[in-house]
Design a binder for these strands. Structure first.
Lengths: 290, 290
DNA sequence: GATTCTTGATCACCATTTTTGATGATTTAC
DNA sequence: GTAAATCATCAAAAATGGTGATCAAGAATC
């Protein structure tokens, strides 16, 4: 039979208060109740915990060790209690966030770090997806939030804007297109376009060029690596290639249809399911900070 | 109010058995008892743990997290119980062993390693002392065992022999005494003798030579270092200087009164206080192995 | 679709456990 | 030596937890 946590508390109180009487006062019980509790505990464990030989009780050697263990059990139980209290007061147990891989991760991570520092009890799960895959995953996982470049608006979704991101059409300095003074659609279509794999299987990136040959990469890091190797051309978010453009490793392509475009990422939540405290706090941090 | 461990067990059983009825069977209770327990638990935590909406109960999101915590509490409590069982069956909670620093530590450490591998629950404390300090500490700490070179026999102490150790009188190869063909007591008394500090403050090493100048070191490692630096001469246990004698860094002194002596270390226990299972096992390992 | 099973909630009742308050033996403090 | 602690013990009261029966509602079976 497993010991009762109240009995462990009694043992602890006896030791810290220096006696049964003190423990009773501390626990708002009567002395005989404490006496009963620890005796029962000792019976259950089949082990003397207190030495009643003298005027004041003392821990037996075994009691000392058991008290250490008992305190661990108590602490664990209280941790559980505290967690429950927070869940009960509006902190959701889990928060799932889908992030579009085209967005800079840093502001999101910074916000999560703050959240952790505020000792938010919620277990936050972040998943990175691309293009249509973001909303696909948002729906499939019943996620709470998504940070997305494009999404299909619906009445049950509520969006708020995030800071703009700029995309730049570029290629390696060694790439044939990099040398051109001006590039038109036909020029582009003759070369390999690099794109990020849409993790839902219904690719629909409105910024693609419709050439014959497209290589799909698994993310923007891989895409950038492919660009640097001269494998092809493609759009990249500015924050990922600024350094390379400055150093000349990559070149911005002088495409007549526009060499850059900006978009406003959205932080999307479900209108019908209110965010818990953690979700609300995260949304707030993402809105204020980045 | 802290949740009751039995209630946590009920929650766990409901989830693993897939329902109240199954849990009741598993815990040898009746279904309504389980129902009562979890409802009380939920009341205490102020939190719904199970979703009774459908035909079969399901954990709520908060319930999932709480179950994880609950299992930790249960595991901790069971660990405590297991420990108690072992203490109750003769494993002492603590075992204090005093070891004479002149003895090779390796056999002792090997025995302790074995003890640990056998998952002995006892917390073993080993202290190294020197000369009279060993018995001094043995008495002061009310230790259970001592491994000692010399000790004052008493009726309440019971000893068993350990493998012999040889001591060699030596000095650095550069030391004046190292060159002599024969050394007598007067020769020795003219040089600095190196000795290990007695950690009780009543030095009585019967192997000292009574010269004017004695340097006391804090252990045999320090003493050996001092010997190698040519600071003086002194006795060293053979196992610590064999290599140095072979390489010629140290020399055995041709003392007319004997250049070597052997002693039989003793494993001493208290006759009036029987060893616990861990102490007995350790004594057994030390007797058989080294 | 009607019937049968199963699931979990609920209730009144009873057994057990826990708390209480009183008492007593022993030890410490003054 | 007296007064004030300390802790054990006991009977009675209170609270807690368990039992078995019953009920409504969702699956499963035919």
């Amino acid at each position: 039979m497993t010991p009762d946590i109240d009995a462990l508390r009694a043992l602890d109180a006896i030791v810290t208060c220096g006696g049964f009487a003190g423990a009773a006062r501390r626990l708002n019980r009567v002395q005989s109740a404490i006496s009963y509790q620890v005796r029962k505990l000792e019976d259950q464990l089949g082990l003397m915990l207190l030495d009643r030989g003298g005027y004041r009780v003392q821990l037996t050697p075994a009691g000392e060790i058991m008290l250490i263990e008992a305190r661990k059990v108590i602490a664990q139980a209280e941790h559980m209690e505290a967690l429950a209290r927070r869940f009960a007061t509006g902190w959701e147990p889990r928060l799932t966030v889908i992030v579009d891989g085209i967005l800079p991760l840093e502001p999101t991570l910074a916000a999560l770090k703050l959240l952790a520092e505020e000792r938010v009890p919620t277990r936050v799960q972040v998943k990175v997806e691309f293009l249509g895959g973001v909303q696909f995953r948002f729906d499939k996982d019943e996620a709470d939030l998504m940070l997305v470049k494009d999404y299909l608006a619906r009445p049950d979704l509520h969006a708020q804007p995030l800071p703009d991101v700029t995309c730049i059409l570029c290629a390696s300095a060694d790439h044939p297109l990099a040398a051109a003074v001006s590039v038109d659609l036909t020029d582009l279509q003759e070369h390999v376009e690099l794109s990020v794999q849409d993790s839902s299987d219904q690719g629909n990136d409105r910024h693609m060029f419709g050439g014959e040959r497209v290589f799909y990469l698994s993310g923007f890091v891989a895409k950038k690596q492919a660009l640097l190797m001269g494998l092809g051309f493609g759009w990249m978010p500015k924050y990922l290639v600024e350094e390379d453009l400055r150093c000349g490793r990559l070149r911005e392509l002088p495409f007549v249809g526009g060499r850059r475009y900006r978009f406003t990422p959205q932080l999307v939540r479900r209108a019908n399911r209110p965010l818990g405290l953690a979700g609300a706090r995260l949304a707030e941090l993402l809105r204020d900070k980045p």
